[in-house]
Simulated assay, not measured.
Amino acid sequence: MDYRDLGRTGWQISTIGFGAWAIGGDAWGKTDDATSLATIHTAIDAGVNFIDTADVYGDGHSERLIAQVLRERPGEIVVATKAGRRLNPHTAAGYNRQNLTAFVERSLRNLNTEALDLLQLHCPPTEVYSMPEVFEVLDNLVRSGKVRYYGVSVERVDEALAAIEYPNVQSVQIIFNLLRYKPIEQFFAAAKAKRVGILARVPLASGLLSGKITAATHFEASDHRNYNRHGESFDQGETFSGVDYATGLQAVEELRALVPIDASMAQFALRWILMFDAVTTAIPGAKTPEQMRANAAAAELTPLDAATMAQAQAIYDRLIRPLVHERW
């Protein structure tokens, strides 16, 4: 496992992290807690020291599972959580001192800790990035000792650029994968200049880039890949990176020809992300120890050559760019 600096925190975190949305059990089909706990332990055994969760993943269930592991393996991992999506309605006005403090207190209880390692605003409305009072609340939470550092999780590149104008934002979590090139062109250089960490979320495009999904794949009713393909429940970009399903499958079939003989499609997709030194970590989800071991092994793959990178971009430019590039 390799490690990179997370912003200006002084932490070095694994280039492959553990995304804990799936183990919440509310948006990716059925889960089993014993298997989820074993998967987290497998991640740590593989050198992963960064876990990303949120207070709404399973209504706190994901955080509580992580807390069980933390009790057994204290001091080994950095846990990032998120706040804001509990608001109903989810409006910019809700990002106030009272609500954010209450969300933090709840996550502290769920994670059974005295301070949150990294608190991230959870894809707030765009207006929030023009509200300095929100970031003053976060600064106060740091000063109070409830939060060590803070960052943001965003939907769009323009939101990421606005966020890093606030001097104490340490990280930006943004969708970045073989079907999302815009961050390379419009965000990475700015983040590097300000020493802001980048957490690449949805790195496998909701499983599309695993190479295991086909036109005949069935998704459970509780799986967002069934009910959110057109943004019915939350931002469309969260599901298959906002790419039309059939077009995404076509792109994956063409990308498959670029996969090294010693790698899976998913490992190739993760290794591609790590070719960009602006990225601190990729945070794929995993529901089983086997998936986690395979994800972690992506960090050990030989770097991709220039020809492979160019061919991957050509597929993006032809099939995907017209669909998503300007939207997010």
Rank of each mutant, 00 (worst) to 15 (best):
H90V: 02
G151F: 05
E136C: 11
N96M: 10
E133V: 07
A205H: 13
V137W: 14
D139M: 02
V137P: 13
E155M: 04
V142Y: 09
F188P: 00
L121N: 09
G84P: 04
A80D: 10
C123L: 12
Q173K: 11
F103V: 06
N112S: 14
R109D: 05
A189Q: 06
A92E: 14
N168V: 04
A115L: 07
R180W: 09
R156V: 07
E76N: 11
E105I: 05
V104N: 03
V79M: 09
I174V: 14
I164D: 06
D117F: 05
I184K: 04
Q170C: 08
L204V: 15
N168A: 04
F187Y: 12
A190I: 01
K146P: 08
A92I: 09
I77R: 00
E165K: 11
L70T: 00
V157H: 02
P183S: 06
G151Q: 09
N177S: 07
F187I: 10
F187E: 02
I77C: 08
S107A: 03
V142M: 13
V79S: 08
Y149R: 05
Y150W: 13
G145A: 09
A93W: 04
A92V: 07
F176Q: 01
E165T: 09
V128E: 05
G84N: 11
V78P: 02
V142P: 10
L161M: 12
A162I: 03
V154N: 07
A102F: 06
Y181V: 05
V202P: 00
G145N: 06
D139T: 00
V128C: 00
L138V: 09
A205W: 14
P132M: 00
A83I: 14
V104D: 04
H122G: 05
H122V: 13
R195K: 13
M131L: 12
L199I: 15
L204P: 03
V196F: 05
M131K: 07
V104W: 12
V157C: 15
E72D: 11
C123S: 15
P203M: 01
Q173M: 15
L108G: 14
D117T: 01
K192A: 15
D117K: 01
N140D: 12
N112E: 15
A190V: 00
E159H: 02
D158C: 03
V152S: 06
L119A: 14
V104S: 07
V157L: 00
V157Y: 02
T91A: 10
E165V: 01
A102E: 08
V152P: 04
L138Y: 05
R106L: 15
A193T: 01
Q120P: 14
R148P: 07
P89V: 08
T91H: 05
L179W: 06
E159V: 01
G84R: 08
A93G: 12
R73T: 10
P203H: 00
S144E: 15
N140L: 09
T91G: 13
Q186C: 02
S144A: 15
L87Y: 04
V128R: 03
A115M: 13
Q186L: 12
Y181M: 13
T113N: 08
P132G: 04
V78F: 05
L161G: 02
F187W: 05
R156F: 10
R73K: 13
K194E: 04
K82S: 14
I77G: 07
Y150M: 06
S153T: 12
F103H: 02
I164A: 10
N112F: 04
N110G: 00
